[in-house]
Amino acid sequence: MLQNIGIPGLILILVIALIIFGPSKLPEIGRAFGSTLKEFKKSASDLVNGDEEKKETKQPEKKTHSKSVETEQSKTVS
């Protein structure tokens, strides 16, 4: 859908937005849109990286748990 807009279509959209919102509101709308897009990208990457981090953190927890069990068993035997 957006692939068929082209440069003349973009110019038309920007002119209409300028007429509707005015020159003072347009930068504020751009900043709000940019920050929203940035937060969305960050959240999406956190979801993807969060799954990988959970896998990485689960493995060391198992190792530390087994070490503490071994330590408790050696104390009991002694």
Rank of each mutant, 00 (worst) to 15 (best):
K55I: 06
K55T: 06
P8Q: 02
S35R: 15
K42M: 10
A17H: 08
L37W: 12
S45F: 03
D46P: 00
K55W: 05
K62H: 04
K42T: 07
I7Q: 15
E70C: 04
T36H: 13
L37H: 13
P27G: 03
T57L: 14
K42Q: 12
H65F: 05
K63R: 11
V15P: 01
I5R: 13
P23Y: 08
P8R: 09
G50F: 00
K42V: 07
T64D: 10
S24G: 07
F21I: 05
S66Q: 12
T71M: 14
E61L: 11
T64Y: 12
F21M: 09
I16F: 08
L37K: 14
D46I: 00
S43V: 00
V48M: 03
E61P: 01
T71G: 04
S68Q: 08
K41W: 05
E39P: 02
G9T: 00
K62T: 10
K62R: 03
E70L: 10
A17P: 00
P23K: 12
N49K: 11
F21S: 10
R31H: 03
K58T: 06
A32Q: 04
Q59E: 15
T64F: 14
K54A: 14
F40S: 07
I29F: 08
D51W: 01
E52G: 02
E52Q: 13
Q59H: 08
I19W: 09
E52C: 05
G50Y: 00
T57D: 15
V15R: 15
I13W: 13
E39K: 15
